[in-house]
Design a protein around this nucleic acid. Sequence first.
DNA 1: CAGTTCTCACCTAGGTGTAAAATT
DNA 2: AATTTTACACCTAGGTGAGAACTG
Lengths: 229, 229
Amino acid sequence: MFPTLRVSFTGLEPDSRYYVLLDVVGVDQKRYRYAYHRSSWLVAGKADPPLAARLHQHHDSPLTGEQLSRQTVSFEKLKLTNNLLDKSGQIILNSMHKYQPRIHIVKKRESTPNQGPSRLEDELHRTFVFPECVFIAVTAYQNQLITKLKIDSNPFAKGFRDSTRLTEYERCGMESMESLLSQHAAFARGPLRGFPDPMDPEGTMDLLKHREYFLSKEEQLMMEKHGMM
Amino acid sequence: MFPTLRVSFTGLEPDSRYYVLLDVVGVDQKRYRYAYHRSSWLVAGKADPPLAARLHQHHDSPLTGEQLSRQTVSFEKLKLTNNLLDKSGQIILNSMHKYQPRIHIVKKRESTPNQGPSRLEDELHRTFVFPECVFIAVTAYQNQLITKLKIDSNPFAKGFRDSTRLTEYERCGMESMESLLSQHAAFARGPLRGFPDPMDPEGTMDLLKHREYFLSKEEQLMMEKHGMM
DNA sequence: CAGTTCTCACCTAGGTGTAAAATT
DNA sequence: AATTTTACACCTAGGTGAGAACTG
């Protein structure tokens, strides 16, 4: 998942241990399509049947509250796929659907010897949602600005830098390019908020028009560029 | 460290958790040199002052006894160096000295929240030593057979395959090449033995003449080829 | 034809021994 | 003269988007 989701915590018990988990849930029952000439997403029908959200455990878990207060937890290894048969633990999503990533922190029960929680309902936990991280999953980029932004910010795409693909958007300039996603964020960056938050029912669609993310079989998927620090 | 050290365990408590650790200790107070014309190691004086042995914790630790009874623990990520200032956690050794790797299994104390043991003396543990894994650290290979063996068995050295560097050793043939190290093992493969084992005082030197291992600043080091399964 | 999958060139990142250079 | 360090070519391994091929 690139750009990477990053979170930090305060107020935890220093000597307790915690798992940090992430899952991705559907935002609405709609399927979307991209209107190229209007540069915006439109509703294109009802959603496909939702998939059971896989719980992704951060690879450093569990960490003590003391450790979590000092270091940032980064989900740089998270991968997304549309392959329903995936067995490598990637997050499975439907293309052209709108999604919300969620962060869960789970207090470890010292009695159990095992490898982290499998059902949140069974655990002492708290869930955080950042509505500005909502995205639409795609298998191919619909918007040249997203492509450009990713090429310019991901070292693995260096081979495509200096491209002059941009035509109608060229006047935006490189500077505004970098901050484009954050300008279009549905909500300002703020302190942590508990879930559930009232999901913005409609209307953010237009604001989210440049939030599109790459979803491909067994491949990495792009997400919210800006961290959650 | 290539070839990789691999260990498996039996007889552990299924529900307890254990750390698996490795360290490398000096075998004797000698420095060695390689007599090229005789193809054997000779004593070349007294050892340099010994270095405090770093304890390397296996990255999957801790694991339950149940997990350890099923899976092999592989130290493929272990790295050795002669850089005294190393801060990346590599094992620090003196070149041209003889070394013995040791495997430690430490029962986890469920009460403590932290990240694994730092002093073996403070922990419930058991140490295992495989005398056939003794090696001499080097910064450059002294023996062409070692070079050839590594080139033929390490995927990262593929670019040097099919070389016809071997002259005096050529008659050995590829087949015997592969088994050369094991033929020269100081002891037969056997069941686990507790430490300390009586270190073979002298006499194994000649048997160990082909056990030389690559030691380089911030670089990987070659070790015992054959696993400990 | 919109959307998905596949193959490819082009990168990052890092593990190899070689040979020359530097060190002792 | 023996040993260590450095620069380098050549690999593995895998993350990129482009564009062709495929699918329904």
